[in-house]
Design a protein around this nucleic acid. Structure first.
Length: 361
DNA sequence: GTAGCCTTGGCCGTCTTCCT
DNA sequence: AGGAAGACGGCCAAGGCTAC
């Protein structure tokens, strides 16, 4: 079976979590509902009409995907909440009928359908209410409806467009777009120096020692060595591996580099001589074991972030981290695509003064 | 071609909630 | 307490698609 929105909850969540793309979908798809409590709200009847399916079909989608639909905003209104909702609609419809407020056609149709329901609505003790997100969610799950298919393909187009617009189609350095990247990269750079210094001082001369121990760290954190990572992200030999890494990974690498440097130093002092490369590699395995308990949670998180983001943003699958692939959080979409995100170059420009100060220290 | 599967539509009974 | 209406889920038949 080919993977598409109707059968991949991961892809659905990745789209629904992408607030930047969803904003664009609002604009382009339309279908504005009645805004209540800060969100557009729709009834089951309205969804059925939009998708041109029976109410029972909408109900079945909800029935079979309850958790997901609830997460995207589906709700049952009862009691005071429902009363409030009904009052607001009645008021809204009245204002339009009195000509105080003139809606555009989109909203006009919506009002009409609310008005049609107003009679029965006034008596009902409970009402299923969808948000815009849960409306899209239902659209992603409806396999039969032609309208839903059109909606799905429109959503996908928009999601791709937004990604292209925001990062000009270049996802290679999307990791650099979040605020945390720069401080992490700087911190890591410093620890990297300590690390290479330590390898200089405490390990006998060997031109492979840097590469081998660096790969040890990479493998420990995300199971791939630099070469494998390079292949998966399609990096040329000139491009720096670290410049493509997310801040969380860089932080963790810095932790390893710092920790192992100290550990290596202690061993050097205990022995009173430099270590050979194979000794150092054994020592690293040892270091991995004694720090394992502390590092496992961080490592698990790093793997999950890296595997999930690379699949969603870079269309790159880390085969060895397959079981760590999860949805990308809406917070992540904001971080990498939203207002807080920025080209590294631009961020450097904005932080010029800060860097000047740092440099002068 | 057709058997089998999935989705949908339609019907129904039960549950929930609130109003009179 | 009784009634009214939507929510919910079971059931079955029709239609469409797929694999053999």
């Amino acid at each position: 079976m080919t993977k598409d929105l109707t059968n991949s909850d991961l892809d659905r969540k990745n789209i629904l979590n992408n607030n930047i793309a969803i904003q664009e979908v609002y604009q382009q798809i339309g279908f504005f509902g009645f805004k209540h409590d800060g969100k557009f709200r729709f009834t089951k009847q309205q969804l059925a009409e939009y998708f041109e399916v029976d109410i029972r079909t909408i109900e079945r989608i909800v029935e079979n995907n309850r958790d997901e639909v609830v997460e995207s905003g589906y709700e049952i209104y009862t009691g005071i909440k429902l009363k409030d909702f009904k009052d607001k609609i009645a008021e809204f419809v009245n204002r339009i009928n009195e000509g105080i407020y003139v809606p555009d056609t989109n909203v006009g149709n919506m009002v009409q359908s609310f008005e049609n329901e107003l009679d029965s609505l006034s008596k009902t003790p409970q009402l299923a209410v969808f948000t815009y997100k849960s409306f899209l969610n239902v659209g992603m799950l409806l396999t039969g409806s032609e309208k839903a298919q059109i909606l799905r393909s429109a959503i996908l187009d928009i999601v791709i467009d937004v990604l292209n617009q925001k990062i000009g189609g270049k996802t290679k350095y999307i990791n650099q777009r979040e605020e945390e990247f720069l401080p992490s990269a700087i911190r890591e750079y410093n620890y990297r120096q300590e690390f290479t210094n330590a390898l200089d001082y405490y390990i006998t001369e060997n031109k492979f020692k840097y590469a081998q121990l660096t790969d040890k760290i990479y493998k420990s954190i995300f199971k791939e060595n630099a070469k494998e990572y390079r292949q998966i992200l399609k990096l040329s030999t000139k491009e720096s591996v670290r410049s493509t890494m997310y801040s969380e990974i860089l932080d963790l690498i810095a932790g390893y580099e710092n920790g192992f440097s100290k550990y290596l130093k202690t061993e050097f002092e205990r022995l009173g001589r430099k270590l050979g490369l194979s000794e150092a590699i054994l020592l690293f395995t040892n270091y991995e074991q004694i720090t394992e308990a502390t590092l496992i949670p961080l490592r698990e998180k790093a793997r999950s972030l890296m595997a999930s983001r690379d699949l969603a943003f870079r269309d790159a699958l880390h085969e060895k981290l397959k079981e760590y692939v999860n949805e990308v959080s809406s917070d992540d979409y904001d971080k990498f695509l939203g207002d807080r995100s920025m080209d590294l170059e631009k961020r450097l420009e904005e932080n010029k003064e800060v860097f000047k100060r740092l440099k002068d220290r």
